[in-house]
Nucleic acid binder design. Structure first.
Lengths: 164, 164
DNA sequence: CAATTCACTTGCATTTTGCAACCTAAAATC
DNA sequence: GATTTTAGGTTGCAAAATGCAAGTGAATTG
C-alpha cells in the first residue's frame, strides 16, 4: 500500500526528503499549520487540486511517519487530522520556504505581510506553536487572494492581545 | 524535454514546491552549498545514488529555475555548476530541514554539531554565504560518516579566524 | 593514436501520478 | 423510515516520472 521507495542515505536532509520530498506532503502540513484545515474535504478543496487517492495516500504516509495523527470526532462520520509535535516542528522549514518563495518566485503574497514575517520570525513561530497547542483553528494566514486583504488582520507579532 | 507538470497555485509555498518538491532537487542544492560539489561526477558519486538521467534533468530544471548556473571551466571537458543568489538564498530552508531531520529522524549526524548549528543559526548562514561569495569549496559539513569525525573541524561559529 | 574521463543521452521496464468513477457508512432531510 | 447528502475514502486505467544499464561524443592523458 505504501509506495515509499527506498532510503538512500542517513544524512538528515536526505532522510527528511524521503518523507517530505514530493509536491504534496509539505503543502498538507502547511494547510494543517497555518490555514485551519482539519478534514479530508478541506484539503481536497484547498485549491491546489490534489487527487483524492494521492491525498489519502499522503495522509497515511504522514501518519506512518509520525507527522500527523487521526482523531475521530464525536460526529461519527468526520475524522480530524492534527499535527504531532514532530509535525509542528516543521514550522521553521515552512516559514523559510514561504519567505524564499515570496522573494524569489512571483507569488501572490502581499509584500507587507512577508516583510513583517521576515522581521518577526520568532514571533510568527511562537504564534504558530501557540495555536497548535490551543487547537486554535483560526487561519494564521489567509489564502493570499486579493491584494487588499479583507480578512482578519493576520500574523504580525506586535499586536498580540487576548483574542475576543 | 522538461517534464515539469503544471502550476497549481500562486501561493509562495506551492510555487517553491513546484520547483523543489521532489526527492533530488534540494539534495543537489545542498551538495552545492555545504559540501564542495561542483561537477556532474561529484553529484553522481554523492552516495545518494541519483541516476544520471535524472541528475541531468534536475540540473537543467534548476538552471531554468534560476537556482544554478553552468560555468564552463578552462578545461574544455568539465563544467562547473554554481548556485545563483536565488539558490544560495535557500540556505535557511536547508538549515531548518537539516535541523528538523537531525532531531526527528534517526540520522547519523553527530549531536554536538547539530546542537552548535542550532545555537548559531545566523553564524552558520553567514559562513555559508561567505563561502559562496568567495567561491570557497571547502566543505562546511563533512558527509556525516563516523561519529568520531576525523575531517576538518567544521561549521561552528565562534572559532572564526582568517582562513590560512 | 589508443585509452580514459567527463558529461551527458537513449531505451526500456517499473513506479508513481492524475483523473474519473465508484463505494460504504453515517447524518440530514422529508 | 426511505431518500438524499456528506464524509472519507477505493478502484481502474492511462499518462508521466523514475531507475537502471548501456551507449555517445568530445577533450585529455599516456
Amino acid at each position: 500500500m505504501g509506495p515509499m521507495p527506498a532510503r538512500r542515505s542517513r544524512c538528515p536532509v536526505s532522510m527528511s526528503l524521503d518523507l517530505l520530498g514530493d509536491r504534496w506532503s509539505l503543502l498538507i502540513v502547511r494547510d494543517l499549520m497555518v490555514r485551519g484545515y482539519r478534514t479530508f474535504r478541506e484539503f481536497q478543496r484547498s485549491g491546489e487540486g490534489i487527487a483524492t487517492n494521492i491525498l489519502a495516500e499522503r495522509l497515511h504516509r504522514l501518519e506512518a511517519g509520525g507527522i500527523v495523527v487521526r482523531e475521530p470526532t464525536g460526529d461519527g462520520r468526520s475524522t480530524h487530522y492534527r499535527l504531532t509535535q514532530k509535525g509542528i516542528a516543521l514550522a521553521p522549514v515552512l516559514l523559510e520556504l514561504l519567505l524564499w518563495g515570496a522573494h524569489h518566485e512571483d507569488s501572490d503574497a502581499p509584500c507587507a505581510i512577508i516583510e513583517q514575517m521576515e522581521q518577526n520570525r520568532a514571533a510568527v513561530l511562537a504564534e504558530t506553536y501557540r495555536r497548535w497547542k490551543d487547537r486554535d483553528p483560526t487561519p494564521l494566514l489567509p489564502p493570499f487572494r486579493s491584494p487588499t486583504a479583507p480578512a482578519a488582520a493576520p500574523a504580525a507579532a506586535s499586536n498580540r492581545r487576548k483574542s475576543k
